[in-house]
């Protein structure tokens, strides 16, 4: 039986879809059968980040409505055969989702994959509630920035009130990814450090991802940054995916300038 992980953020534009793509591919690269599902109905984006936009024939709403089977709709990635993808509907409205339909789809995916990763829409509307409803775990993506952190706390609050697991008296494990860290700014006191964010949100840290120009370059090409094992963000996602798959990988300090300085020095000697 697969594990269902919802990727949530509260605020939009913090790198949630990028994180979903990289976490999904990272799990696949760890030899686990993984499917990523875009729950952001009406704003299909994950297909672009994964470079699969031209291969989408059926979307997840069509599967839920019985117009296509899971088999017909799921796209197998050419990057890694363990990575599978189910697209969001671009035409339908978020209101098309119902608890029954979502449960049926997720139950079927759980039977077929080790990991089911759900990219939730931003905000805390019904689309978000349906994404977290049947999740076993959640990954919360924040930027070290006040509005992102506040919205994340609100999203966590809704998760803790509305998920089926919580209603059944269990707990949904939540893990934090701090995205777009600038070591220079943390060191100069202009940016919240991960420890501060952890103090505020009070959930365990899954990983820290540095601000990395390569992320945009990667999405331009539809090749998630985790494939660039020289990039800071790519390495960070590789560590994160390893942790999700049960490996004990210590957290790397990406907030000290020393790593940046070292790099600059290394650059001189290149």
């Amino acid at each position: 039986m697969g594990i269902v992980i919802a990727v949530i953020s509260g605020k939009g534009g913090v790198g949630k879809t990028t994180a979903t793509a990289n976490v999904g591919l990272g799990i696949a690269l760890n030899n686990k059968k993984c499917i990523v599902v875009d729950f952001d109905i009406g704003q299909r984006n994950l297909d672009m980040i994964l470079g699969l936009e031209n291969r989408v024939v059926y979307d997840m709403v069509q599967v839920m409505d019985g117009e296509a089977s899971v088999k017909q709709a799921v796209i197998k990635s050419k990057i890694d055969e363990n990575l599978n993808f189910l697209a969001a509907s671009q035409t339908k409205d978020k209101s098309t989702l119902t608890s029954e339909k979502v449960k049926k789809l997720i139950d079927e995916l759980k039977d077929n994959y080790d990991y089911v990763i759900l990219d939730s829409p931003a905000g805390i509307e019904s689309g978000f509630e349906h994404t977290i409803e049947y999740a076993d775990k959640a990954i919360v993506i924040v930027n070290p920035e006040v509005s992102s952190i506040r919205d994340a706390d609100r999203a966590i609050g809704i998760l803790d009130a509305k998920s089926q697991k919580v209603k059944d008296g269990e707990e949904v494990e939540k893990y934090l990814i701090v995205n777009r860290i600038s070591a220079d700014m943390v060191q100069s006191g202009e940016m919240l450090c991960s420890e501060d964010i952890l103090d505020i949100l009070n959930i365990p840290l899954l990983g820290k991802v540095s601000e990395d120009r390569g992320v945009i370059d990667a999405s331009n090409q539809g090749k998630p940054i985790i494939l660039d094992n020289k990039s800071d963000a790519g390495q960070a996602y590789a560590r994160i995916a390893g942790r999700i798959c049960g490996e004990n990988i210590p957290l790397k300090d990406v907030e000290s300038v020393s790593t940046g300085m070292f790099k600059k020095l290394a650059g001189i000697f290149k």
């Binding site: 506040r150 609100r154 100069s188 006191g189 505020i200």
Partner: peptide, 27 residues
Amino acid sequence: SWLKKKQSASVAKDRLTIAIMSDRESN
């Protein structure tokens, strides 16, 4: 100016702690 900058992250932390506390209460 360096000292002033040093404070903005801690200002953020203080403001967030209070804002989130009141958010959680009203929720």
